[in-house]
Design a protein around this nucleic acid. Structure first.
Lengths: 196, 196
DNA sequence: CCATAAGGTGAGTCCGGTTCCGTTTACGTG
DNA sequence: CACGTAAACGGAACCGGACTCACCTTATGG
């Protein structure tokens, strides 16, 4: 149980390299769908020994948590990029599908995600908040352009997506999730029939 | 990896007793919220040795699966009882809240539930089907009595509940889940404003 | 170039699920 | 009521995998 001071001096060059390699190896493993990849393997494929892994991450779960956090970070930068390249409506559509596909990562890590949630770690609150922010950005752009209805907020949409991605882990879930997301998107477009 | 022939002769008296004791001990443990109770402990508190546990259940997960299945069985008999004692509307209300509280059991077993789902074991399909049936029974009784709207089916309602119970594991989820369920119930009552 | 503290290593520990085989026990039969 | 036997039980041993620790290596600032 190492203690990591948040105000420590910058890492030594090799240390930073190894840390990076570990995160990327772990990401690789979990994206590959191997939810219970062994630490030994992750360490080896990063070219270091387990001891090094444990120097950087308190536990296996902490490593996964970090991978998850980075993944969320990356996703949250996407809306900006998409809005540069596409009309708001299309950007929104792409982002929704991106999120669903991304839930595949969650699938690989589901057991741990549960345990993280149970731990009340702030990671999830953070993730939720940032993700809702990302969605809001898209929704606002769309409603400003008049192509997306303006009575749905980021957090609401996130909740809907959460429900969809909760389907994870039954066979064929991805296809179904994509369909439902497409429906959801249609409902978000301006001019869709609205409940009074 | 024992093989259990489905058409084996009835268990010996002591064997049945022990099996029962094991299930009840396991149930106790998981209801108590200890998601990762040790097999050793479960066996001991059932008054047997681990070997005996493994004679009856192929693996730890199999034991949990069985507990879950029994739990669902029990729940599915409730609607009948409730309909005997209450008006359909009230029976429905009570059953919905019962289900939410019951999700607490699910919480204790969440990790395993995930892994069962991932295993494509038929347990979940069964559970879903039976549960939807139980809900249908209540909905039909209610709509026959004219107190519950008739355009919602058991499977649909189950899906909605699934979403609510998916909230499991964040602090305070139970309170929130109860609230949302109450809202849901109000929406189900005949005469509630309906989307066109 | 040296001192030194940061970083790395990997065999070993611990822990918990699972197995295996010798012993005990229920129960049908003579 | 023995008795034989298959069924059931016990629990020490096994094994796989996360985590530790005592010792070695190396980056880096002076």
């Amino acid at each position: 149980m190492e203690v990591f001071l948040s105000s420590s001096r910058p890492l030594r060059a090799d240390a930073r390299r190894n840390r990076e390699a570990l995160l990327s190896a772990a990401r690789q493993a979990f994206l590959g769908g191997d939810a219970d990849a062994h630490v030994e393997d992750i360490a080896r494929s990063a070219g270091v020994a387990v001891g090094t892994l444990y120097r950087h991450f308190e536990t296996r779960d902490a490593l996964i948590e970090e991978v998850y956090r980075k993944e969320v970070d990356d996703l949250c930068t996407e809306p900006g990029v998409l809005l540069d390249q596409h009309a708001p409506e299309e950007a929104l559509r792409r982002f929704l599908l991106l999120l669903v596909d991304h839930a595949a990562v969650g699938k690989g890590m589901s057991g741990v995600l549960e345990s993280i949630m149970a731990t009340d770690s702030p990671v999830f609150d953070d993730a939720r908040t940032r993700m809702a922010g990302a969605l809001s950005l898209l929704l606002e752009a769309g409603s400003a352009a008049g192509t997306v209805r303006d009575d749905v907020t980021g957090p609401t949409l996130l909740r809907a997506l959460g429900g969809i991605c909760g389907m994870r882990a039954t066979a064929g879930w991805l296809v179904e999730a994509r369909q439902i997301t497409a429906l959801l998107f249609d409902g978000l477009r301006h001019g869709a029939p609205q409940a009074p």
